[in-house]
């Protein structure tokens, strides 16, 4: 039987994800029971209105679904042998992987580090500066256009966004 590589990769990850889901749903079931009995003890309520009932049901169905996923993926040739350092090295070398990491990294920098009072830098960076830096970094890294154009585009965008949201829509941007 011929299975194409993409599908094989998909089933491999499915196996891993199914296992993670199963562990998570078992933890969820235990958690639901704990909070339900805690709530029943404190507020003296019946089980049918305990806060853990719906999460218990979700946990149960999630467990069943994860099992089905595991069985299906196994039948279609998924396994966990791909979790070897060698295969990871190949992945690390691919450009796509690094691009993904960089985009997430910039988003993290913009959304978490530069926004509001930054816990890491300890100083307050105004919104427009953070936006300006983010736009420049993103466009420079991916070589969107000429350097000067990038600065101009970033500047105009920053100004427009700041003007629209802060001045027109009266949103208190940091």
């Amino acid at each position: 039987m011929i299975i194409d590589q993409d599908k094989k990769n998909m089933r491999d990850t499915d196996v891993l994800f199914a296992l993670i889901l199963m562990v998570a749903s078992i933890a969820l079931i235990i958690y639901s029971l704990v909070i339900s009995f805690e709530a029943m003890r404190v507020t003296d309520c019946a089980f049918y209105i305990a806060p853990g009932l719906p999460t218990l049901l979700i946990g149960f169905f999630l467990l069943v679904s994860a099992m089905i996923l595991l069985v299906t993926a196994r039948r279609q040739g998924g396994d966990l042998r791909w979790l070897s350092p060698k295969k990871f090295l190949v992945k690390f070398k691919s450009k796509e992987f690094w691009n993904t990491v960089i985009v997430f990294g910039y988003l993290f920098l913009y959304m978490i580090v530069l926004w509001e009072r930054t816990p890491l830098l300890g100083i307050h960076i105004p919104f427009w500066l953070a936006t300006f830096i983010f736009l420049n970094l993103m466009m420079l890294t991916f070589k969107a256009t000429k350097f000067l154009n990038i600065i101009i585009i970033s500047g105009i965008t920053t100004f427009l966004v700041d003007f629209f949201f802060r001045t027109l829509a009266r949103i208190p941007l940091p």
């Binding site: 988003l107 913009y110 983010f134 993103m138 256009t145 585009i153 965008t157 966004v161």
Partner: peptide, 20 residues
């Protein structure tokens, strides 16, 4: 417009939108 310019701008709009 080249998406390499557009997507960072969309990203900014998304982030501001979440805050707003």
């Amino acid at each position: 417009v080249s998406q390499k310019i557009l997507i960072p701008i969309i990203a900014v709009l998304c982030v501001v939108g979440v805050y707003a």
